[in-house]
Nucleic acid binder design. Structure first.
Lengths: 340, 340
DNA sequence: CTGAAAGCGCTAACAC
DNA sequence: GTGTTAGCGCTTTCAG
């Protein structure tokens, strides 16, 4: 009844009265084994329902054929797109993808990364958690020369492959667009400034103001964690200023949406009275009313690039690190278009 | 320079002039080792930067501590929610989650599943691809007594754990709601009928019609693969009938959205002239205008339940299979509410 | 072209 | 409480 004992190469060998090494070679299509025996062996393997034990082969080869990917939240369009891109490339190259989410918790991230290390992933692709501020768990990988790639939320003090979008340019484009549309007092909801992406977005915003000779008003820039609730709180605060903004550049689409709904519910007309732009191009930004202008980030492509880079490193086809900056695209929709 | 040689228990043993088995035991907190030596060993392990090689331990223990999950598309809110739920429970129980997407391709699904088998996952959670019609790759798991759980798109001919929502009841609720709102000719966009979920949705729809003595008109039911494009094609076809429907129950939110946009662009008022309901409660259905009525499926909970069931099986705490039917919730929004 | 033997890193039965 | 030994299933050097 014990059908869950899985046949090994030895079972095949015994069946054919040959050695296990011959079986192993045959199964791996080693040309040193005659075609005839190869076929015979494969036939027996099939008939026994043999499936190679990757675990054993990995141990022996000191290679797991596995790539780890860690994201803050799987369940977010941008990140699941990246995962999808990684999976696409990795699968075609014969790698298994192990995913985990940090829930944006530094402690969980450390745990996950260590467990991936223990599982001997051949490479790790990661977008760090919001509050991660110590990087020993990641330095472990670079120290041991296990390929490591960052995407989106990168760590500047670790030298390795990085895939990011041009947040600075994206934010600049957003701000310039708002100015072109005639908005005068442009607010900004920024994310945690220890994360480069949010820092760069703020800098792009500031630079655009400067280039257009618009004085910077500190009270118009709010820094928070960019949740839906943060959006509402921020909107409240901004609109209660004695001199409220006439446009808000939100650090992501989540807050753009909650800000918009908050304003809409208070009878403030968008884009006539207040213009809104988000960041990330979440699927819903296109279909809400008014539709939200935003910056499109090529998530799937980022995942593909990250996987390509890391596989090249794993397979030793590449030594030098690179930072790939993918372009963003400003998508102008109703929430910021006044017809100019 | 060779810093990427990773220390093993033997290195620790040599350092302390003790045996590897003692080290192994100490690291696993075996009470047979005195607390003092345990601590000494752990200290040395730390100082050497030792990290256990899970691969080796897995091979030895014939257990990978890994759960595989296969979904049609990672990048879809419902599925990424389920993954998130699986990950949540699995992580807490000390399991690693390996994910893969079939892209709704039967061939890729077979590949993935076999590779997961080769990787000796301890259990597999899967929602099958749309066109999967042969199930040998899955029977392999049940034959070998490797825990297998289906969610959402289940295979009825394989007896194992299943987690589904009550599609029949959900569809019934939708249809009854439309009838209550005064709609008379209710159309239905159905998915492939080899998938139980779509079959049940259609049956729920038919049952509600019957209960309300509404004659079934075959021309109002269209079967396709429920993509965005399918929605448009179907809407075109339905509205060009000599006697077009005044409400459409769409098999998912994707088609509900594309149908709605198609009708809206043609000046057909929703919900006044035509009512629309979707299925799944994708995030955008709430924020689009008009907002789309739909059925909420508890994706995260399904993932949790699936993980719990499979872990109980893996750890032999449970022998019998069960089918868990989670309730759905009808969410009435603008697209089908005429104030009745 | 094929076989024998060693070993990847860890665990556990068995000894003392 | 600790050591010895064998072995998980596979690959690969070396020998012939």
């Amino acid at each position: 009844m014990n059908r869950n004992v899985q046949p090994t190469i030895h079972d095949i060998a015994r069946e054919l009265k040959i050695s296990a090494s011959t079986v192993s070679r045959a199964l791996n299509d080693n040309p040193r084994i005659s075609l005839k025996t190869r076929e015979k062996i494969k036939a027996v393997a099939d008939s026994l329902g043999y499936r190679p034990n990757t675990l054993a082969s990995n141990l022996r080869n000191k290679k797991s054929n596995t790539i780890g990917i860690v994201v803050p939240l799987i369940n977010r369009h941008f990140f699941s797109s990246v995962i999808s891109g990684v999976e696409d490339v990795a699968y075609k190259a014969g790698y298994t993808v192990v995913i985990a989410q940090s829930n944006d918790l530094a402690a969980k991230e450390v745990n996950i990364v260590q467990s991936m290390y223990s599982n001997r992933v051949d490479g790790l692709i990661i977008s760090i958690a919001m509050q991660t501020e110590a990087f020993d768990h990641l330095k472990l990988f670079s120290k041991k020369h296990i390929p490591l790639a960052f995407f989106d939320r990168v760590v500047s003090e670790i030298e390795t492959d990085k895939i990011v979008v041009d947040d600075f340019a994206g934010a600049y484009k957003v701000t310039q667009h708002l100015i072109d549309q005639g908005y005068q007092r442009i607010g900004h909801l920024a994310g945690p400034q220890n994360l480069m992406i949010y820092l760069h977005r703020k800098e792009g915003y500031l630079e655009a103001l400067k280039k257009n000779n618009i004085p910077f008003d500190e009270s118009l820039v709010l820094i928070n964690t960019l949740t839906s609730e943060d959006g509402v709180t921020a909107a409240k605060q901004l609109m209660s200023l004695s001199n409220p903004p006439d446009a808000i550049f939100c650090g992501n689409d989540i807050t753009a949406l909650s800000v918009m709904i908050y304003l809409r519910d208070r009878g403030i007309r968008i884009p006539q009275e207040v213009g809104i732009v988000g960041f990330s191009n979440e699927p819903y930004s296109k279909v809400v009313s008014p539709s939200i202008s935003t910056i499109a980030q090529p998530g799937f492509e980022m995942g593909q690039k990250a996987a390509e880079l890391i596989i090249r490193k794993i397979e030793n086809k590449e030594k030098t690190y690179q930072t790939i900056i993918l372009p963003t695209e400003l998508i102008i929709r109703e929430s910021s278009y006044r017809g100019k």
